[in-house]
Design a protein around this nucleic acid. Structure first.
Lengths: 132, 132
DNA sequence: TCTTGACCTTCCAGTAACTGGAGGCCTTAT
DNA sequence: ATAAGGCCTCCAGTTACTGGAAGGTCAAGA
């Protein structure tokens, strides 16, 4: 299987697949002409990584997840711990974005959005929010 | 005012302030010894940028906001448009994270988290999620 | 006066995870 | 034979900083 076939069947861009090889996530064979030859196992690995990435796991976490997946003696507790830690990160980000959203949408509501210059959004940015 | 004073009064790291000068957001004067000398106007600008950044605006948006702030003939509509576009981005991110959160927390709930190897989280990652 | 420590400076490299593009083989069809 | 399209590698750029090295400056104390 050539790289573009793998790309279309995993949904990952060709460039990304090459990148994953670069950083050692996969190690596809090469045929005589230098083209990468992907096995079913490579394909499966890439799909696994793609799914993990789509859940927001970082590359290092993907590495850990792959390792756990291939380790028949793993404890599900280890996987769960990893996932919980990631969930915590997600919750932190959601909270931060939610805070931004609240403030911003408040300011937007207060802004007339006409051709006059006075604007509560700029006023807020310019106001003293005291870091001292 | 030297850089560390500005840092403590804006809450921005010294490194970040230097970086903001590098990319042309500010242009503090220099004294004879080469030290940056920050005016009240520099300070105010940095506080403005810091606040905008804390609301999630990117550097380029900060540039635009500063420009609008300094333009007495601005229309508040332009500011509002910028803010709304940013709010849209935030909403997109929140939605994406919320989706991740839902899937992930579902999988975590289903995982025993004991010393046995079977794990619904890994099973999901390995399952066919079909991109073809 | 000397020294010590806290400032300040610049420049270089690294972070996360790709993405775009240049330059150049390889293959397949016409 | 040639043209299109797929493949290759390598380099640079993205975002917004952050860490560290090497070295100049300044104020206070012995």
């Amino acid at each position: 299987m050539n790289i573009s076939d793998v790309a279309s069947s995993t949904g990952l861009p060709v460039k990304t697949i090459r990148y994953y090889e670069d950083i050692g996530l996969i190690a596809p064979a090469r045929s005589a002409n230098g083209y990468r030859q992907f096995s079913d196992s490579d394909l499966h690995k890439l799909a696994f990584i793609g799914r993990a990435r789509s859940l927001g796991f970082g590359i290092d976490a993907c590495r850990d997840l792959l390792r756990l997946y291939n380790d028949q003696t793993r404890a599900s507790a280890d996987v769960k711990k990893l996932a919980q830690s990631h969930l915590g990160e997600i919750d932190r980000k959601i909270a931060e974005l939610g805070q931004m959203r609240a403030t911003l949408s408040h300011l937007i509501d207060a802004c007339a959005g006409n051709d006059r210059p006075d604007c509560p959004i700029l006023a807020d940015l310019a106001a003293d929010h005291d870091h001292a």
